[in-house]
Design a protein around this nucleic acid. Sequence first.
DNA 1: TCATTAAATTGTT
DNA 2: AACAATTTAATGA
Length: 227
Amino acid sequence: MATEAVRNFIASSAWGQLLTPEQLDRVLRDASETGAGPGEAICRNGQRSDYWYGVVEGLVKVSNLGPDGKPTTLIGIPRGGWFGEGSVFKHERRPYDVVALRESRLAQVPADTFHWLLADSIAFNHYLIGQLNTRLAQFVIRCEHLRSYAPERHVALCLAELFNPVLYPGTTMTLQLSQEELSFLAGVSRGIVNRALRHLEQDGIVEARYGSIQIRDLAALRASAFR
DNA sequence: TCATTAAATTGTT
DNA sequence: AACAATTTAATGA
């Protein structure tokens, strides 16, 4: 049986609320909690995909090592986000590392339970299609953005992505995120992040604090990524 | 409570 | 990548 924190997290999640009481019961029985400190891996490239993960608290990154051995971050997952469904669905090994950026706690739903939900709940299927479709759109937009906009704009896009209500419903207007962490997520240097935040602050869009970022105008933040 | 120090983060080159 | 400046957290008087 999962911890109470994990049970509450799942029961109040977008997909948990779609389940029948019986379905939810089984999920809560099968789920468990895991944690990772800064820099620690939740799972590694090549490992079997035994769980579907949700971020209860903290922040994790999905990254990979390039041919030169340098890590490249693909996405950051804040509190409230679920990830890893792709490789669980396909019964494949993880095609990436997942590493905690800060102290994090995660809910893990076993692959068997995940597949049972797919077979048993139409609502869950709808939820999952929505999640996959939104994730696809995220990467399409990113691909375009990488080719069409300067690195400084990537910072705004990266911040705005964290407020995608489908993928990350739990994101609050105050992000517990240092400039160095943001530089990993956005795939730009820390200097670029610093400059971007400075400009966003001048426009009244964000407020940069020591170790955190306060969003003042989310709509303007989204727009500023494409100017 | 205040002062000191180490560690983390930021600003700049 | 390297360096200095700044902020925070921890420690002990």
